[in-house]
Design a protein around this nucleic acid. Structure first.
Lengths: 197, 197
DNA sequence: TAGCTAAGTTGACCGCGGTCACTTTATTGA
DNA sequence: TCAATAAAGTGACCGCGGTCAACTTAGCTA
């Protein structure tokens, strides 16, 4: 059987995460180097990889935490009253993911399915997001604010698709003066959720 | 001014592409190593990087070619008569991209925008796909087969979003016995294109 | 044909993620 | 208290993409 981890191990893991967070703070996600993390944490490289499957595994924890924090903010308060309000609620998430390609890539790679076991932080966050969206959509359907001819689950996954779409487009251009993802999302959601007249 | 490339250069480039194609044939896209390519082509590593910006640049040519071939097949024949037929026409593309994550990643990274200059094969293929879709959708709208309350361009980009979505989900699970992307696409397109009653 | 210049090519070198046989440290049981 | 055993950590090493100053070759001119 598997024993409980020793205190030393927990401390090492915490130290690694703390250092990684600090580096991300200073240099952004794309500036994170494994060698820097272990150097500043005062451990060997192998140690990091005994705590996290690979670099993505470390990033997943950092990013997953942030996504969870964003979801907390999303969930707070009443559900959105209409499609526009729903769109607005998604803006913080788009802003966060839109800030660095690394985030987008990681989320896309590890969170595309609702089916997987939720041992990973990212997958858990993903499931939570879809669940929340589904709940909101159900409310909006009942209120007659959006189309009722489709399952809320399908509508929720469609929203996921549009979120990723606008982010993908966003990262494909030198985004200096272009429309930010949050703004680009509106027409898609409007067309997707529009009540069948 | 820039001179025309010498014959030797064109031969080297052709050789590199030929070898790369062969390796992909044998080992798949994810099995492609730059060192293998240059070894079998009988040139130095630096040469490859003087012909292609990076490994992705090489892959872009290979994949872009294939996408173009698929588009040729798509364009042949009459435009689809209804939404289901349109969905079916997209299946070869989904099958191709779904075969290897490398293809998906590359297409997603370099082809998300209609706006960029079409010097890249991938971007050109992307533009061609959106254009073709838009044309088809216009025909379907005129025929009253699909909703008419949205611009065909927006509908086309939405389809792009759903294509990527089902592919993303596809790559997030051990796809052994799961529903292939081409099948997963149908409900989304059905809901997206459904004529407003 | 010698000499010059730009085009084309080279391969040693680097950065960085990831591995694994080994050492060190903690825990357990007699 | 002292092996025996498992957990934790180490760092030399590897694979692979990408760089760049130096070298070779082709084309031009006098």
């Amino acid at each position: 059987m598997t024993r409980a981890p020793q205190k030393r191990r927990l401390e090492t893991r915490a130290k690694l995460l703390e250092v990684a967070k600090a580096i991300v703070q200073e240099q952004g996600y794309s500036g994170l180097r494994v060698e820097d993390v272990v150097a500043r944490a005062g451990v060997a490289k192998g140690t990091l990889f005994s705590h996290f499957k690979d670099k993505d595994g470390l990033l997943a924890v950092l990013i997953g935490d942030e996504v969870m924090r964003l979801l907390d903010g999303m969930e707070a308060g009443d559900p959105p009253q209409d499609a526009d309000e729903l769109t607005a609620r998604l803006a913080p998430h788009l802003d966060y993911v839109g800030q660095d390609r690394v985030i987008f890539d990681l989320l896309l790679r590890y969170s595309g399915t609702t089916a997987a076991e939720p041992d990973e932080v990212v997958t858990a966050g993903f499931i939570r997001q879809v669940t929340l969206l589904t709940r909101w959509l159900q409310v909006l359907q009942t209120a007659g604010q959006i189309r009722q001819d489709q399952q809320p689950e399908l509508l929720a996954e469609g929203i996921q698709a549009f979120l990723n779409h606008v982010l993908g487009v966003w990262f494909c251009m030198e985004h200096d003066d272009e429309t930010p993802p949050a703004r680009a999302l509106a027409p898609y959601l409007q067309a997707w959720l529009q009540p069948a007249p």
